[in-house]
Every structure is written in C-alpha cells, then in structure tokens.
Design a binder for these strands. Sequence first.
DNA 1: ATGGTCGGCAACCGA
Length: 271
Amino acid sequence: MLLWAHTPSKESRRMAWSLATFNVNGVRARLPLLLGWLKTAAPEVVCLQETKVTDEDFPAAALEELGYHVYFHGQKAFNGVAILSKNQAAQVRSGLEEGDGGQARVLAAKLDWGWVVNLYVPQGREVGHEAWEYKLHFLGQVAAMLPQRFDPAQPLVVAGDINVAPTDLDVYDPKRMAGKVSCHPDERAALERIEQWGLTDLFRLHHPEEKQFTFWDYRLPQSFKRNLGWRIDLVLATAPLAKICTGCLVDVGPRGQAKPSDHTPVVARFG
DNA sequence: ATGGTCGGCAACCGA
C-alpha cells in the first residue's frame, strides 16, 4: 500500500509516555478520586505514597481493570507505597538495604525503560525531634543507596513525596518557614546530595521560576485557594531521561474533589 | 499569637 511508504520508522514514532507521583493519603479512601484521575490522565507509570493499607487489603483489582500491573509495599494504618505500570515490571524491590525500620516507604521497579524508585520520605514532625533525625538518616540512606545500586548514565527516576521543599521558591512563605521542618538547611543539603549524584528535578527544569505547590497547609482556612503550600512531591531523573523529558506539570485536577490534607499529582512526560 | 483537618481505626498518631 502507498501509505506504508510514508509511515515513519518504529523508532521515530515511539510513543510518548508519562510518569506520575501522587500521595493519595489513603488509597482506599481516595480510590474513586484516583480511578477517575487515572482514566483521564492515563499515565504509563504511577508512584503512590501513603496508601495506608496492608498488602493483603490493597485494592489491586480496581487498578488492574484500568490496565495496570500493580506492585505494593504496605503496612497497617501508616505509610505504604505502590507502583502502577502499564508494562509489567522485570524486577521489584522494596525497602532500603538497611531496611526501613519496619516502615513501608520505598518501592523500586525495573520497567521497560529503566528503574523507578518510589519514595515516601518521613515528614519529620519538627526540627530536632527524633522523627526529624530519622528523616535525615533516611535521606542519607537514599544518597548512599543510589551509587551502590544505580548508574547516573542509565535511565532512572526517583519520585515521591520527598517532604523537603528544595528552595525558598518551593514554599509559600519562606520567611515564616525558614529553618522549619521541610525547609531546614540540613534537609535541603540532604536532598542536594541525592540530586548531585546525577538527578534533575524535572518540574524545576521546565519551570525555573514558577511558584507551584503540590501540598497545602490543611490547618489554614482556604489554603488551596490562597495557595499556601509547599512543593514537596518531586520527580527526579538521571540525564538520559531528563534529556527526553518534554514537560513536567502539577496536575491540580483532582484537587477540586480533594480534602484539605491531600496532595496533588505531579506528571512528567517523556519521548 | 494561635489554631485549625484529615485517614485509619477504634484512642489517638502521624501528617
């Protein structure tokens, strides 16, 4: 047929694909919201955090019906991470080398294009608290794990609820938040160490000046409308993926139906 | 200056 002669090669018409990170704040409570969002946004890969459910109670079937392979690492009531992928994973690994201290906060999958590492970094409560020291330890473990297990010259995404606002541009009131949890210099230095290994913050790559948040202060009235938030949900990628990243957006679509304490998805496009 | 809201789970903890 004549048209075949004009069909681009398989390489040049390789499908664009997208990867999202979304702290769902309870995957069962937020399942209708999540399913509705997946149907319209249709990302190829999704990292979920705060699923708050044991593996035996994870609502896998509803997600599989949308065409996802579903991988999860959860616990009762708190934490919990999951990866959804349109393509089947070749390998899945949960936790860090030293373990997560009984907390389900790390899940990695080897997909057709490379590895994705899904992180739910501890929030830390407040600077100086035992939980804050653990947060720094956790970030240090991630920084140590990357060079042990991965190569910055190969395709890798590290995505999740990082619970650190990388710079003052990533918080609604830098003066008020100066030195506080999520903005403390030690936390930012720990994140910088992770990025300096060879990861690029894809939202910031495409939006160098934009004050766009992914989480808003649920304790302040109308915080979403007044944009009183932080950008703490990140998609980081090694150079081979940063080079083919065509955009990265915070999708506030689900926010209309969301509770004040909910995060909103971040979506990166590639290809 | 201080307080305020969620989910999970059955009293408050963590965010």
